[in-house]
Amino acid sequence: MPVENNVYADTAYRGSQCPSVNEIYQANLLEYLLIDSQLTWHNQYTYKSPINWQFPSHWYKQYTYQVKNNDFPTFWRWTDEAFKAAFDEDKTKPTSSLLFTIMGSFLSFPLAWIWIIACWGALLAGCVIEMMLLPFKAFLVFGILPPIVACFGTYLNYWVTDKELRCFERYRWNGEGCYRRTGKVKHAYIGEANFTDCVPVVEHNVMTNGTTHLSLVLKYRHPENPYQSFEVHIFSGGTDYSQIEAAWDTLLRYMDVEQPLPDIPSLEPFRHLDPTTVAFDQAGKRGRLDNFWVDFYAQHSKPQWQDYFTQYDGLRSDNPIKVMEEEYRVMMNGFAPYVPPYIPEEVYQQRLKAAQDADDMDIKLTEETEAS
């Protein structure tokens, strides 16, 4: 059913109408060997999101290149209408050559220090062996030229990276993904099915180094037509199972039209376009400012986000995104209670009250036991 006037379709997924029985996926032999476990539909919404969705270090740089109105490009993975699961490469779009990419990486800092020091070492060794200063040409080639080339390579690497980012448009969405307003899951080439007719499973793939790579996959098997069966890949969690569970929790909240959009950076530009989210935010339940993520990224220097995990500015212990990730990971692993802004304030208060009631009950039972 098409959505008209920004209203959800009758087929949209609603958490209150969640299936009472979790369907067991009937897998064939090959699928059975790949499936690690099956997730349940009866999720009480822990309000957890995978760390690379909760704090994507590259998000603000991408966002600054987008049109600041509602005209977001097709390669933007999250919108208020659909979560886009798969993309095809558009060969007609320009892309940087592999040669430029390799040159930019090898000739730029900090990797350039390796061959600069090697050149300076060779120059010094030549002076020691000859017991005299080498000709000016040797100083020019081995002493002065390497830093100049490294500076040029650094600029080339920045230009290539910037060009690649601006040319993300060469990836076009093939229509595969999960549609919030209609409650449908579509495969790019086979067909579509209701979100509740799909089964969430965790697949494991053994890597060459012996570790297991986990993936969240939605599988659909038509009861009468086996050719209409398909699967849609949702998320890769590496070896961290909690990341898979967080991805499923995020997807459930995203598809549930009774819930606001997950409060992640990629969906913040679309919160004003979703009716449920608008009502939630206007009631003051979000607990954050309207442009929380945009302002959070904008108030820090760009290198902290662009070079996160790769350069010095990103690896510093006082990097705010690193601090937030560490705090969030401790919560995900169960070593600390969830607090705002990681979960809504009202949910936090409910959990505090439930914990207090449980403590009061324990105290009451202890007093009754001692009295008896």
Results as ranks from 00 to 15, higher is better:
A138R: 01
E245P: 04
T196L: 10
A118I: 14
K137A: 15
L273Q: 15
I264E: 02
W53S: 08
E164K: 11
S16E: 13
V128G: 04
Y342D: 13
D88Q: 14
S37P: 00
I51Y: 01
P200R: 03
Y65A: 00
P135C: 03
P146F: 02
Q356A: 11
V149T: 03
R221E: 13
G177L: 09
A188M: 06
P50S: 00
D10F: 10
Y342C: 10
D36T: 11
P344Q: 10
Y179K: 05
A85I: 06
Q243G: 05
K219G: 05
V232L: 03
N69S: 12
L123M: 12
T79N: 09
N333A: 05
P260V: 11
E203P: 00
Y308A: 01
D281F: 05
N291L: 13
W41N: 07
D357E: 13
S242Q: 12
A354D: 10
N225T: 09
N333K: 10
P19Y: 02
Y8A: 05
T366I: 09
Y63Q: 07
L39Q: 02
P265N: 04
L261M: 06
P260C: 08
V217E: 10
Q299V: 05
P73W: 01
V199E: 05
N157V: 00
G314M: 03
V278R: 13
F235E: 01
L134I: 02
R286G: 12
I51Q: 08
W78R: 01
D295Y: 01
P262C: 12
H272F: 13
P2L: 08
A336Q: 13
W113G: 00
F106C: 09
W248I: 06
G237E: 04
Y47C: 04
G15S: 13
T277M: 11
V141P: 00
W120P: 08
Y155T: 10
Q243K: 06
Q66D: 08
E176G: 07
I244L: 00
T182S: 14
M131Q: 15
G284E: 06
E327F: 00
S236R: 06
D274K: 05
V257I: 15
V21L: 07
D360I: 08
G237W: 00
V199G: 05
E368Q: 12
D80K: 07
D88S: 15
D274G: 08
I144Y: 10
A82Q: 15
L365I: 06
T366K: 12
Y254C: 01
L251C: 03
K93P: 02
P50R: 01
L145Q: 05
